[in-house]
Amino acid sequence: MDPLWTNIFRKKLDEESLAFFLKHLPIFSELSPRALQILEGIVHVRSYKANETIFEEGDPGSGMYMIRSGTVKIFAGGQNNAENELASLAVGDFFGETTLTAPAPRSASARTIEATELVGLFRADILELAEKHPAVCSVIFLGLTRIVSERLQAASLEIRRLKKQIGDYTATEGIET
């Protein structure tokens, strides 16, 4: 065997490994290699067909999903109402992280657009991890809190902007009438 070829082979495998994928998600970027190895042991890799429902609005939510391959559509509204697409997510994106710590019903539905591989991280696994490896768990939670805070901040800015827009709109309406 040519050592050059085996080396190339190994490098490629590394990049395809689950730990490599997790390491490049913003939530887990601070994890040490050992912590990544532990994390690798508690996540669930699930493969979905095209157009398969991942969860529906109102389902009991208990964890987050990360997209390893494929695309996922997030939408509001069930079978009766028209689907109101909220987002289309691709490789490296994640969703459902708000129900990871607090049990709550899903606030939107998710469905795959093409054949998709998802990596799931669920509350049950996180709670077990908290007992066994509290340090690793706290690093994961720090990453999660950072992401959730960023999103919250963006959302509150957006709300302020919209409020201002409504205020401007009603003001102009008031002048006109």
Binding site: H44, R46, Y48, E52, T53, I54, F55, D59, P60, G61, S62, G63, G120, F122, R123, A124, D125
Partner: peptide, 9 residues
């Protein structure tokens, strides 16, 4: 897949 989350919980 559809029931996986609930079963895990």
């Amino acid at each position: 897949n559809r029931h996986f989350e609930m079963v895990r919980d």
